[in-house]
Design a protein around this nucleic acid. Structure first.
Lengths: 204, 204
DNA sequence: TATATACTAGACCCTTCGGTCTAATAAATA
DNA sequence: TATTTATTAGACCGAAGGGTCTAGTATATA
């Protein structure tokens, strides 16, 4: 019934989402025109409006699309390695992920739109920080069962560790402030993981 | 020489700055028109342009103005109280300060404008997070001298503590995501200060 | 093949907005 | 008082941009 005539091209839809997903974070919502998106997508303006009925809808779809892409692997914590080694590895991977320019742009965008588009930032938060926190919390619980660590409240501990990891450079990067060298950053991460384990190590 | 005729009214200037300082964070730069600022300030549009030559200039002046207001007292750390008590007090004060709606708006604004107005976010950062960090670092150093704590790198430790404090709820609030109850937040802060001290206490 | 829909290019409408100009009034200095 | 500048209300300009419309072409289904 609804399959009469030429169907909408999924490729064009993807092109539009890709263009919007690049331009919105880069220039901000208000400074990105629909015409510019159409041009960047290699598509006519009318086609954009054929796939998305207004700017706000397109914005939502584009951010959702990018958030979905950035989902990190859940089996990271499945490895059986020394706790300190795994946590340090996590810290390093996380920083690399979060400090990437496009991730920063997306993050800034969600923060700036959190009043006008609460669902967007909610979604970003759940797919990003909250998901990681949950995974880490589970891992820490397992460590406690194995008596590798001694943590009263693993949820709090997970938030603490993640906050410390990101706190150093991510906050600065989000605000566009220069961050230290790679060596300094890595020193900070090593110190932080060590400090975390010292605070939560099993009693002698 | 330059004092001929009627002088510009400082009151009107303040009204304009107040209006801009309220509207820009609330609605974003692009969504706040000069006409709206003039009206909110109870002043004609021309007067706005008489005091500030363009929108960008006004934006800069307004944010600077608000940042200056929010400077926190430096003598907080001068009190001689038990370390744990003082740090917990700091944590509570900081959270109250950072979670205030207008502070959040200003913070979001700086983040969203950090590409187009790097000086602004730089200034915000130095007057805010960086200033607090410096004060805390000094305090921690003093604690080490008194053998109350044992910290190899007080700069790192200061960042760690501040990150943990803000990490819990501030990150969420910045993204407009609901935060826990006051009781949960306070539990988190107490746990965090305790954990910090446990990690950095002087060796037995 | 006939029909229905997608897509394009471009004109078009209307609103918003940054910024300027004008003419008149108010308030300061000299 | 004479002069100079601030302030106002409002018209005005020009550019940008969201969104619609049209006419023509391409591509799918039936």
């Amino acid at each position: 019934m609804s399959s009469k005539g030429r169907p909408k091209s999924p490729e064009k839809r993807d092109q539009i989402l890709a263009a919007a997903g690049a331009l919105f974070p880069l220039q901000g919502v208000a400074n990105t025109s629909m015409a510019a998106i159409a041009e960047a997508a290699g598509v006519s303006k009318q086609t954009v409006y054929s796939h998305f009925d207004c700017k706000s809808t397109l914005f939502r779809a584009a951010v959702t699309h990018r958030v979905d892409e950035h989902q990190l692997t859940a089996d990271f914590f499945a490895q059986s390695r020394p706790v300190e080694e795994l946590l340090l590895d996590l810290a390093r991977h996380l920083m690399e992920l979060l400090l990437a320019e496009d991730a920063l742009q997306l993050h800034r965008l969600c923060i700036s739109q959190c009043i006008s588009h609460p669902e967007i930032s909610q979604q970003f938060f759940e797919a990003g920080p909250e998901a990681v926190r949950q995974l880490l919390e589970n891992y820490l619980s397992q460590c406690c069962e194995k008596k590798l660590l001694q943590i009263a409240d693993t949820q709090i501990a997970a938030v603490q560790l993640l906050s410390m990891i990101t706190g150093g450079a991510h906050e600065r990067a989000l605000m566009g402030v220069a961050i230290g060298s790679k060596a300094e950053l890595d020193l900070y991460l090593r110190e932080t993981v060590t400090m975390f384990i010292r605070a939560y190590q099993s009693e002698k």
